[in-house]
């Protein structure tokens, strides 16, 4: 069904079980070789390989932390001036570069509806610098800047809602436990013009303190506990939930990860309530 050819080499610098690396592999299968990748500071700045090597078979430009979207906008304009209207320009950005430092440039590109694809591979903290909290870090999480006796006190920023509020033509969530869903969405997005946002839930065994063999399982549980629902938003308004969750309790997800080991029963309960409330909101939008 999808491209058999690999556009990512096996020789990369990722940790074992890295969700961001699986994501790149699937994404490139869906994007194909007529793609230019923009990578600002994030794990992938390192994973792609040091000079003179590259783990990727498509052109890549590495750029500054907060410029994933703006660099992509510039490339697209340049390609169009050269008469190339076919090549997909894709920003490939971590959660720090998306939710935090790069949100202004992303909002600018989305408001202009620049013809770019924007991928956020979300591992829920600044993993490349050694697991510091970002605004994508969920409530109660241990990171190196939110120690276990003072874990993150705020919920995860809802980036999909922010992007939907820009009324961009397409926004979708996906994750490595559902590769067909991911590749279908990326293929669909590729055929659309304008700003397209793909939010990839991307397990990080190193930062989440989980065995590398569990990355895919954790991603699957994130979907089935409704912590990370898989859905699409077209035109900022038409919501469509793609995978029916099994409604598993969040505890099944949380207890596999050392970053949540310190949580009290009350805190787990708070997480469950938040997840249920957010899910109800999403379902309402999908039924509208």
């Amino acid at each position: 069904m999808y491209e058999r050819r690999e556009l990512m080499y096996a020789g990369h610098q990722a940790c074992a079980g890295c969700g961001a690396t699986m994501s790149m592999r699937y994404a490139l299968k869906a994007l194909g070789e007529k793609t230019i990748l923009v990578i600002p500071a994030c794990c992938w700045s390192v994973l792609a390989g040091p000079f003179p090597y590259s783990a990727l078979q498509v052109p890549v430009i590495h750029t500054a932390f907060e410029t994933g979207a703006s660099t992509a906008s510039g490339i697209k304009a340049g390609l169009e001036m050269r008469g190339d209207t076919e090549t997909t320009v894709a920003a490939w950005v971590g959660d720090g570069g998306t939710f935090d430092i790069g949100i202004q440039a992303l909002s600018g590109a989305a408001e202009r509806n620049d013809d770019i694809m924007y991928f956020c591979y979300d591992n829920e903290a600044y993993m490349n610098t050694g697991i510091q909290r970002s605004s994508a870090t969920p409530f109660g999480t241990w990171t190196t800047t939110t120690p276990a006796n003072h874990p993150k006190g705020q919920p995860k920023k809802n980036m999909m809602e922010i992007m939907a509020a820009h009324r961009i033509p397409y926004a979708a969530t996906c994750t490595v436990a559902f590769p067909e869903d991911m590749m279908r969405k990326i293929s669909k997005a590729k055929a659309i013009r304008g700003t397209r946002f793909i939010h990839i839930y991307s397990p990080c065994p190193t930062g989440w303190k989980a065995p590398s063999s569990l990355s895919v399982k954790i991603a699957r549980l994130a979907v089935h506990t409704k912590i990370f629902p898989l859905y699409e938003v077209e035109g900022g308004e038409r919501y469509n939930i793609n995978v029916d969750p099994k409604n598993l309790p969040v505890d099944e997800y949380l207890r596999l990860q050392g970053r949540f080991a310190h949580l009290t029963d009350d805190e787990v309960h708070t997480t469950q309530e938040t997840v249920d409330r957010e899910w109800e909101r999403l379902v309402k939008k999908a039924l509208d």
Partner: peptide, 24 residues
């Protein structure tokens, strides 16, 4: 020419970097 009315000077230069790297 393409005129990109960005949301900051930082993005203005980032756009220029992207466009120049694309060869224009």
């Amino acid at each position: 020419a393409k005129f990109i009315p960005v949301e900051s000077e930082h993005s203005a230069m980032a756009c220029c970097v992207g466009a120049a790297a694309a060869g224009v």
